[in-house]
Design a binder for these strands. Sequence first.
DNA 1: AGGTGTTTACCGCGCC
DNA 2: GGCGCGGTAAACACCT
Length: 263
Amino acid sequence: MPRPTRESYGDQKPPFSYIALTAMAIWSSPERMLPLSEIYRFITDRFPYYRRNTQRWQNSLRHNLSFNDCFVKVPRRPDRPGKGAYWTLHPQAFDMFENGSLLRRRKRFKLHKGEKDSLNAELAALASFNRAFLARQAGAPPPQAGLPNGSMYNPSSTFISRPSPEPPEAPDTAALLPQGPRPRRAFTIDALLEPDPRRSSPSPPPPQLPPQLPHCPLPLPPPYLLAAQRYHAELLAGLQQSCLPPLWTWRDTSQFSHYTLNS
DNA sequence: AGGTGTTTACCGCGCC
DNA sequence: GGCGCGGTAAACACCT
């Protein structure tokens, strides 16, 4: 029996859960992260069924994004204004589909309490960076960026961490980073503006960033732009290590049931 | 105002 | 029957 192609679904409801549809959309994007509106667009572009009753399924999809730990909300970069955050997949969730098939999930992806806490702390720090960034841009004295207790910001730590009894306010997972230990740096604009010592040694190239959006309303001073790009790149580094091909391959571009894990 | 995000509740279905 | 999962509805808060 031939497998259904993307087109053959027509107005029929595709056999994918909202989690699978969202994962498809995220994986299909160059940065492995999309705003909600782009996830909607991906789905309606490919599956005509979802061009109707948009309020119903979009509500369900939003519910899934918030409810499932496999989806991570990443604050927008300050130089990319717009509504809503970006959504990406938690790297530990990339194997949640059995044999790589989007038709079947192994089990619900659930973060441990400590992991969730440290992830939230890190993302809150990024959001705080945005506020400080914009305040500084507006000429106001910058608020104390970073975590409320003044702890240091260690990019990517949360995404690579394993379950551990460590308190969330002191994540120390540098040893688990792919490139080896990374020096901690203060999570302030000034610290991020400083030259990064890691760049001086041979290392894997940073994640590719897309060209700047042409409609950025306020041209930012380049150093701040660099700082914004840097923190996003560092955040995404952990994700890209886990999520990007060659881990995953489209088996058939005409359908979406066979993203498969490469061995 | 409308889009986005969170949370709670309920229901149906499949599996054990 | 209990449980886990997926889908849906709805209320509410927040943000642009």
